[in-house]
């Protein structure tokens, strides 16, 4: 069996973002393996630990994404493939390029993050599934392999969740609660440096372009009431919400 994770490198949520020439400038930001992709990597490693076989991590992104691939290798993934492309590519175009690599790898299943922490896209997993002609299970919180061609999974819906049986190969996207990712160990980090990382240049035209990015922080009223007298504070707050904000 072969388990494959698709990952991206994104700015840490705590990093300060700045805008330069109408674009987000990441030069000062701490870049990390996307937290939701980290769950995907962890799950792929656990599946390999349980069922044997091979684990592979694939990224589509700029040169710097290699750091995130190394993190996944340090966590325990066997080898990496890096489709190198700078700049914004829409998820449909990404899926098309990734599908080619994944088809050749012929994994038992693919795991990727539920949402990207930079482009806020949730589309890559399902678009990839469509490109491969496979089913997709998004927002997965549990997965259990029943055989090489069948898995059971629990995943979130708009409201509530459901248990499904899925024909493999399939694409799964991660959700919080799936697992608690391991930290790379020092020996793991050393080993990762020697693991195979294959680079493939990619040139593709995006179907959507980003025209401009801005940071619009709403000016907040900051009207704070002292809660020493809870009853009068509560009345004042309800009055403000009713009469001033007119929201209740």
């Amino acid at each position: 069996m072969k388990f494959l994770a698709v990952i991206r490198q994104v700015p840490d949520g705590e990093s300060r973002l700045k805008i330069e020439g109408g674009r987000v400038d990441l030069s000062g930001a701490t870049l990390i393996l996307d937290q939701m992709d980290e769950w995907a990597v962890e799950e792929v490693i656990r599946l390999q630990e349980k069922h044997g076989g091979e684990s592979v991590v694939v990224a589509l992104g700029p040169e710097r994404a290699e750091e995130a691939l190394r993190t996944a290798l340090a966590m325990g993934i066997d080898r990496a493939v890096h489709l190198v492309a700078e700049g914004y590519l829409d998820p449909i175009t990404q899926a098309e390029a990734l599908a080619e690599v994944i088809r050749a790898e012929a994994p038992t299943l693919v795991f990727t993050g539920g949402q990207q922490a930079d482009w806020d896209s949730q589309a890559l997993g399902p678009a990839l599934a469509e490109a491969l002609g496979w089913p997709v299970v998004s927002w997965t919180t549990q997965i259990e392999l029943e055989s090489e061609t069948q898995a059971k999974a629990l995943h979130d819906l708009d409201e509530g969740a459901e248990r499904v049986r899925v024909a493999l190969p399939a694409v799964f996207t991660s959700q919080q609660g799936l697992n608690e990712p391991r930290y790379p160990t020092l020996p793991g980090i050393m080993k990762a440096k020697r693991k195979e990382l294959k680079k493939l240049p990619l040139s593709a035209a995006s179907k959507a372009e980003v025209l401009e990015q801005t940071i619009q922080e709403r000016t907040r009223l900051n009207k704070l009431i002292d809660g020493k007298d809870p009853v009068s504070a509560a009345h004042e707050l309800v009055r403000l919400l009713h009469e001033e904000a007119k929201v209740i």
């Binding site: 907040r220 900051n222 009431i225 002292d226 809870p230 509560a234 707050l237 403000l240 209740i248």
Partner: peptide, 27 residues
């Protein structure tokens, strides 16, 4: 949370919340 709040009460939620429920009911 107060840095992005429009309105707020700085106080113990266990006291403020029941009072908020009462005030909202009255409204």
């Amino acid at each position: 949370i107060f840095k992005i709040a429009d309105y707020g009460i700085v106080g113990d939620v266990h006291q403020v919340l029941p009072a908020l429920i009462e005030a909202a009911k009255k409204l």
